[in-house]
Design a protein around this nucleic acid. Sequence first.
RNA 1: GGUAGGGUGCCCGAGCGGCCAAAGGGGGCGGACUGUAAAUCCGCUGGCGGAAUGCCUACGGUGGUUCGAAACCACCCCUUACCA
Length: 372
Amino acid sequence: MFKYEILKKSKETKARLGKLSLPHGEIFTPVFMPVGTNATVKAMWTDDLKDLDVGIILGNAFHLYLRPGLEVIDSFNGLHNFMKWDRSILTDSGGFQVFSIRNKKVEEEGVKIKSPLDGSEIFMTPELSMKIQMALGSDIAMAFDECVHPDMDEKYVEESIERTYNWAKECKNYNNKENQSLFGIIQGGFSQELRKKSAEQIVSLDFEGYAIGGLSVGESFPVTRKILDAVMKYVPEDKPRYIMGIGTPDLIISAVENGIDMFDCVLPTRMGRHGTALTNYGKINLKAGKYKFINKPIDEECNCKVCKKYSIGYIHHLFKRDEIFGKMLLTYHNLHFLLDFVKKVRDSIYKDEFLSFKKECLDKGLITLESF
RNA sequence: GGUAGGGUGCCCGAGCGGCCAAAGGGGGCGGACUGUAAAUCCGCUGGCGGAAUGCCUACGGUGGUUCGAAACCACCCCUUACCA
């Protein structure tokens, strides 16, 4: 129950329009996947996600393993039923936690982490990651990888991609769940050579899709672009390609024109909770005092239900009072904004107008010149 | 009327002889956020000055003690609790 078809290839760039068929529905690509780490896209009803035409969200193996734990998920017959989301779910392997959590010990067989709950040791291995993701019952599982910190030297990265390769092999062996596909993750830091090597290693294992990991972790935009361009040559065209953790319009455009089909990011939801709105003219911080009396929607071009109904001044007030509703409204708006943006990207590929769409974004200031 | 406390920056509140332009909150102002240990985190918040171990103004008021006071003393004003 997994199929990827290319519906249209851009004549201008490597961008493509595709259709991904998964056990819980079909998705048109390029697609943005909102992040719902703890079995919830924070501040959103699943009904609202459906209103926004979200076809797939992320969940996280590591977090859900800690809480509520696999026994609970099992007793609710998997993650879909637990969180009442009947569309697709991609679960992250827990590999990113290796990068983001301090006090870890990377070993050949896996990673030792101290539990944030009680300090006890957790040994995350490819086997455990697969066991968790199979229990969660996600439509797409991710191989357990090592997302290397940008400060690490090339020698470390070289060793690291061998680990990621070995772990990927193990993940392939352990994953045998019906109705769950498995994607491999390419690493290699900021070295074009190591990226090539990692891509060849991972592709040799024949996954159902391929992800680019370890980007947008603090490096400059030109570096991200350079690596993306370099690595995509070694990723099969007939498979879905996913860049992990990317979600600004800049990077989305850049990813799509390099032939990427999927991306996820916490940014729209997190920024929504933190008071920043995404608009066609850049982001705005609604906590700023200058918005107190503004009786206009966040973005006059936006036709989401938040912008149709509520003013900037009202949302500003909700944030100043730290009211939950403000976070809900901005999360909704930001997701709408980004999903709508990606929909326009798809339309532009369909009409073979990707480059003029890109130029339009540049002219508006939604994406910036220096990035390109 | 009696007894026991209090009065500190926009607000609450610590400080009880020098290291005090004064802790910590709140509020205000600004910012960050990219496979979410994130409804989180980081600056700034008396005035002047580019800056200083610099100057000015400030801990209810007025005097005083002291080399030095938000802190100690005297009186005054205001206030809280309890008792009558």
